[in-house]
Structures are given as C-alpha cells and as structure tokens.
Amino acid sequence: MATSRLDVTEKAKALIQELSSTHGDLMFYQAGGCCEGTQPQCFEKGGYFPRMNDALIGLAEGFEFWVDRDLFEYWKHAHFTLDVLDGFGPGGFSLETPLGKTFKVHYRLFSEDELANLAPVQRNE
C-alpha cells in the first residue's frame, strides 16, 4: 500500500461532516500565499478552480485536497495532516470561518521508506 500524503484529525473530520451536511460536496485548496496565507481553504465543490499543474494530494473525508503547484514543490517531501483550530484564519473565505474555526495543516518530513513508496499526485491540466 502506498504512503498517504494526507491525514485528517478527528476534530477536522467532525467539522468536515458538519460543513458537508450544510453545503454538500466540498473541496480544499491550499494556496501559496497572498491574502489567504498558506492556510487550507474549504469551499463548496466547484467554488474554486485549481490552476494548471496544481497538485491533488489526497482526499479529506472523501473531498479533494488541492495544493498550489509552487507550494507543493516546496512541501512535496512532507506529509500533511489537516487539523482545525478555534479562531479566524488569515483569509476568512473558507466555509468554516463563520463558525469561528480555521483549518490548519501540520507538516512532517517523510522518512526514507515513506519517500520510496509515496502515493502519486494528480496534476490539474
């Protein structure tokens, strides 16, 4: 079995379930900076369109998790864990913002064994 690039904490799973019950299908996008910083943003599916060559690194509770192409190049040797915190993120565009929550990613570098067996990413064309 290939090494996953993405995991989701129990707190994030609960929030994703809450958001999907209200908004339907979701998607996540983690940009490389600007007004939204590098916090992951949660949108209704189709509410944001990944750019060419952005990377789909996995699914968060069945919903696509996209990473900006440049940010992915920087973090391609790291595992992402999607978590949620109380408080407002830097952008405020994400669906959890009105609930006083913000998604956050924790990173760790892959081990040599994990790197040798990484799940492939899908690129947006």
Rank of each mutant, 00 (worst) to 15 (best):
T38Y: 02
F49I: 14
F49N: 12
L95A: 02
R51C: 05
F72L: 07
A31R: 00
A14V: 13
R5Q: 07
S94F: 03
T102E: 11
E125F: 14
L26D: 02
P120G: 03
A2G: 14
L95D: 01
S20G: 11
T3S: 09
L15H: 08
R123I: 09
Y74L: 15
G46N: 06
H23N: 14
L56I: 11
G100S: 06
L59G: 10
I57S: 00
A31H: 08
H77E: 04
G47W: 13
A12H: 12
A78G: 08
D70N: 14
V67S: 02
H23D: 04
L19K: 01
F80E: 06
L115V: 03
T81I: 00
L6W: 04
P98I: 02
Y107N: 02
G89D: 13
F49K: 10
S111T: 04
D86Y: 06
A31K: 01
L95H: 03
I57R: 01
R69W: 15
L115K: 02
N53L: 05
Y29H: 09
Q122I: 13
T97I: 13
G24R: 04
V67W: 06
I57H: 00
H23S: 06
K11V: 04
N124K: 09
G87M: 09
E73P: 10
Y29R: 01
V84D: 07
A60M: 06
E44A: 14
D54T: 06
F49E: 13
E112G: 03
T102Y: 09
F93N: 06
Y48N: 09
M27K: 04
C35F: 04
A116E: 08
A116Y: 09
P98T: 14
S4V: 12
W66N: 00
C35Q: 09
V121D: 03
V67E: 02
F110P: 00
V8W: 00
L95I: 05
G58H: 06
R69V: 03
R51F: 13
L59M: 13
G32Q: 03
E114V: 01
A2P: 14
G47Y: 15
W75K: 15
A31Y: 10
W75E: 15
L95Y: 05
C42H: 13
P120L: 03
F43G: 11
L109G: 14
F80C: 07
F103M: 12
P50E: 05
V105K: 08
V121Y: 01
E36H: 14
W66G: 00
A14T: 11
N117E: 09
D86P: 05
S4T: 09
M52F: 12
K11C: 04
F43L: 12
V84N: 04
I16G: 08
Y48A: 10
K45S: 11
D54W: 01
G89Y: 15
F88I: 13
L99A: 08
T3W: 00
A60F: 02
A31L: 08
D70L: 05
K101I: 03
E44Y: 15
D113W: 10
L118N: 00
C42R: 15
K11H: 06
E61A: 12
L19F: 01
G32V: 10
D7G: 11
A119K: 14
N124P: 06
K13A: 13
P90A: 15
